[in-house]
Design a binder for these strands. Structure first.
Lengths: 341, 341
DNA sequence: CGGGAGAATGCAATCGATTGCATAAAAAGA
DNA sequence: TCTTTTTATGCAATCGATTGCATTCTCCCG
């Protein structure tokens, strides 16, 4: 346990008989320092095994070059794509990325927010938890002018850039596709209506129905948290009703999957008797039997965009007075669960 | 942009006409400070909107109460389970968790390691990238006595606690199961042999064969990086050989999936003609048709264990002179891809 | 050769919280 | 009432890097 003290710029300064400020500047490639001195210092630093104490520098400069990311669940394909997009841009620009998951739990989200704030991240990108409906914990950031970018599950009440997929159009495309397949009784398994994304998916669904002259029917619209279990329950309810749907638009792929499994177990043919469309294009959607028609969201691009907007704000160091909400296109992917051969 | 200066303990001290040290101690619930003063200070702190500057404290104390986690890919079910286990324990013990993914890329892993080191995380839990075969970047931590715990993809060369699933037994169980199904020509799609986990899975496979009096055959053992594409290629190669296998043990579920899809497309019946077993129990394994028999690893428990061991080392602040490698049990899950009805 | 511009370097304060040690205040004991 | 303990609080240094300003050194030009 020879806790050898770390080499500091002062040690280097002493060794070379110069001042610490010169060392600091040289290591940061400050042009004020002559090339010769810079080289000499860097060489000495390397030889002495110098490792900059970033914490000290962060403390002094009040910057950490770190972006905090909060997502509900890191193992959802959509979220991990967004994260990859964020990382792509962030690393390029010299920022580290610290990822956390809220597990869709408000308290955890709040704890994470406090922790990121306490650690003085330069900015935060987040998609809020399903449970979240109070935004006190996010005021932390706005109070101290720490830029925030929302994506997917955004918050209307807070002034910030927002990146969303075109959920309305997604819902619309999915439903119109089912209509085009000749379906008349199209049900929907929707998500919590406090989240705008689910409102929008549903609005798209309703618009498509109306456009086709079909009457939206409340008995055909269910809401839950879109887990596997919720999905099973919902499809069960739909299929045990007096009037059965001949198609179901599910607000995520998980419930689409539940539905398919339930229908298979109950010997109801997909898509012949009931057609299914999901949302998100999770990897499993492609590989289950029948493969699931779904809506693809440009996760990677959304992540890149979010990171770009955030970093721009961090660098210009002043709050824009106008924040856009950027909508990125969604796309219908047609697979076997919705098309009778 | 009223960049109001933050409230510091000095502001509180001035306001209450006491010293900053007292404020600091009070806020940390140091029993040296009387209960009355403590209350008074906390009240003032709350009123003044005081937010501790954790960066300053970290700088001073040389602790960050943060654990770094490096995994190859966050959206693999196994890894995200491990992360959840780590988080469970870490949050309970007052540590924040900073997650990063290497994308199985050596350079990125190295960058992340440097970044975590620079930010002075108190400890690191990691599973190395497939590409990684040099461990210079990890010496950073051992040099400065920053505890490290490996899991899953471990490194023999480095002295540290290691948590692994019983890969040998997993490979053994999978293979024995196939033998019990009457298969005689059992092939294996294995992973990079620089990683011990894949060596062990293969060793289990070979042992099971030998135990049953079957001769392992090099033509039946393929190695690759276990991606979707690799899997397709491998199964193609196996099926186009003069002697076809009647079963394939895949070192992960991804290649098991590729195999199933390839076989389906080529009208080869699974499991009747070729039985398949995968590894890891990814969520999709359960839902594809046929569902994939696989080996389940206790990811959540591994994460908890890793975090416990790491935090213990962080707290006792001295390197143990003996590091165990902890092996956690794996379990065979039998599904449709390996059992003819 | 003196003066001055420009380049290179140094000085010293600073960021905010922590902590060993000194001191003051209060309580206990004589 | 005066020591001696015990309990509370304050002083001041410290962590390591950064940075505004001052100073020194070069070099060029008139």
């Amino acid at each position: 346990m020879s806790n050898q003290p770390e080499t500091t710029i002062h040690d280097i300064a002493k060794a070379l008989n110069i001042s610490a400020s010169t060392v600091s500047r040289a290591l940061n490639d400050n042009p004020l320092i002559s090339q010769a001195t810079r080289n000499k210092i860097k060489k000495a630093a390397a030889e002495m095994g110098y490792r900059p104490n970033v914490v000290a520098a962060n403390f002094r400069t009040k910057r950490t070059n770190t972006i905090g990311v909060i997502v509900p669940l890191i193992n959802r394909h959509f979220f991990s794509s967004v994260i990859s997009g964020i990382e792509e841009v962030a690393y390029e620009q010299g920022f580290a990325v610290s990822i956390s998951q809220s597990n869709d739990n408000f308290e955890k989200e709040s704890k994470i927010a406090h922790s990121l704030f306490a650690n003085r991240v330069d900015g935060v990108i987040l998609s809020i938890a399903m449970e979240t409906s109070s935004y006190e914990h996010l005021k932390l950031f706005s109070e101290r002018q720490i830029p925030l970018v929302f994506f997917d599950r955004i918050v209307d009440e807070i002034h910030a850039y927002k990146i969303v997929a075109d959920d309305f159009r997604g819902g619309y495309l999915a439903t119109r596709h089912l209509i085009e397949q000749g379906r008349k009784r199209i049900a929907m398994i929707g998500g919590p209506q406090n989240l705008r994304i689910y409102q929008n998916r549903q609005a798209g669904y309703i618009t498509a129905l109306q456009e086709a002259g079909l009457q939206p029917d409340d008995a055909f619209i269910l809401h839950n948290s879109l887990t596997r279990k919720d999905g099973t329950q919902a499809i069960g309810k739909l299929m045990n009703a007096a009037i059965r749907p001949d198609a179901v638009f599910c607000a995520n792929d998980t419930t689409a999957l539940s539905s398919i499994i339930y229908l298979r177990e109950n010997n109801i043919k997909v898509p012949e008797e009931v057609a299914i469309v999901g949302f998100s294009n999770e990897p499993f959607a492609e590989v289950v039997t029948p493969s699931i028609s779904t809506i693809k969201q440009p996760g990677f691009e959304m992540g890149k965009k979010a990171a770009e907007l955030l970093i721009r704000q961090i660098n210009q160091k002043e709050t824009p007075d106008y924040f856009e909400t950027i909508t990125m296109p969604t796309e219908l992917i047609i697979r076997d669960s919705s098309v009778s051969k």
